[in-house]
Each structure stands twice: as C-alpha cells, then as structure tokens.
Computed example of a mutant assay.
Amino acid sequence: MVETLGFHPFYETVSLGAKKHYRWARNHLKHPLATKDQGYRWVDCTTDISTLDTQYIANMLMKVSDYAVNNFIQQMRRRISILERPLVTARGDGRSYIYANFNPKYAQFSVTILRTFYNFCMTYKLGTDRVTPAQILGLTDKKYSMKDIIYFK
C-alpha cells in the first residue's frame, strides 16, 4: 500500500496566478483487502493530505470501513417504524404498506433523536471500557443519559 501511495495522487495542483492550492482529483484507489460481505472496495481521500507521511496514510486507508454507518442505518430502519420496508402479506400476493402514511418531517425528527442517542448515550465495548461514539471521537469525556440530553445537562 505504501508503494502504491508513492505515485497515486488523490489531489491535483491548481494555479491561480502566483498562488497554488490542491483540489480533489477524484482518483479512486482499489483497496488491497477484500471483505467477506462487499468484495473489493474503492477508497478515496477528499482532503489535502500532502503534509502527511505515506506510511500514516496507508495505515488510515487500511482501516477504512463502512460498518459503523451500516450499523446505524440498520438500527434506524429497525427502531423507527415509519422507515421500515413494506411487509409482505401472509398470502404472499402483495405488500402491506401499513406505515405508508408517514410525514417526512416527523421521520426527520425521529432520525435526529436516534442519531443523538446513538452518538452520545449508546455504549460499545472498546478494549476493557464501554464508550460512546462521541467519546471515541473525543467530542466528550462521558456517557450521557437520556435525561442529560433532554434537559441539556
């Protein structure tokens, strides 16, 4: 991966008069390791990484995963009933759209509430500790309860 990154540009140099800046080149790179469920993936970097070491970039790219996003989307679909897929009827001749009359405004409210709960209240095991995604990112140093979120404590 380090050798590939040595000649693979994620950005291009653009000159505006005497000034130069970097712009995303939309130059995807095939990830060297396939996953069981997705096969080979393509990775890209949308930010300027010209100051970072090639070894550091290679380590970051090896950790690329969309499991956290997929997990959140699956939880969102399971926990918010108006976002569920249509159900197949018992006879199998059609689909039941029992949640089809939802209001998108309230669906957005529900997703926002779930996202806040997911990021600040729901813990995961990381080593020997149980932490929230917000703690992993360094946004907070504690796990919040629903009361903390509701009453802004």
Rank of each mutant, 00 (worst) to 15 (best):
T123M: 00
S145T: 15
G138C: 03
S110C: 14
S110T: 02
D129H: 12
S145H: 13
Q135E: 09
N101T: 11
N103Q: 08
L114E: 12
Q135H: 06
M146V: 15
K125N: 08
L126N: 05
F117Y: 14
F109H: 13
S145V: 10
Y99G: 04
G127R: 06
T123L: 02
T116L: 13
T132H: 06
V131P: 00
K105P: 01
G127N: 02
P104I: 10
T112V: 07
K125M: 09
A134T: 02
A107K: 07
T128V: 11
P133V: 05
R130K: 12
S145A: 12
F117C: 05
K105V: 08
Y144I: 03
D141C: 08
A134E: 04
L126G: 03
K142D: 03
K125C: 10
G127Q: 08
M122V: 11
A100P: 07
D129S: 11
T116Q: 15
V131D: 03
Q108Y: 04
L114M: 10
F109I: 13
L137Q: 12
L139V: 02
R130Y: 15
D141I: 04
Y106P: 00
S110F: 06
C121R: 07
L139Q: 11
N103F: 05
N101H: 15
A100R: 14
N101I: 04
P133F: 09
Q108H: 03
N119Y: 09
I136D: 07
Y124D: 06
T140R: 07
I113P: 00
Y124A: 04
Y118E: 02
A134H: 04
N119F: 08
D129Q: 12
R115D: 11
T123Q: 04
R130T: 05
L126A: 07
N103E: 09
V131L: 12
T132A: 04
D129F: 08
A100S: 15
V131N: 01
K105I: 10
D141R: 13
K105H: 14
F117D: 09
Y124G: 02
P133N: 10
I113R: 10
M122D: 11
S110V: 07
N101M: 14
F117H: 11
K142C: 01
L137D: 08
Y99M: 11
V111H: 11
V111T: 13
N101L: 14
Q135S: 00
N101S: 13
D129K: 14
N103K: 05
F109W: 12
T123W: 01
Y106G: 02
K105S: 13
V111C: 12
F102P: 00
I136G: 01
L139C: 06
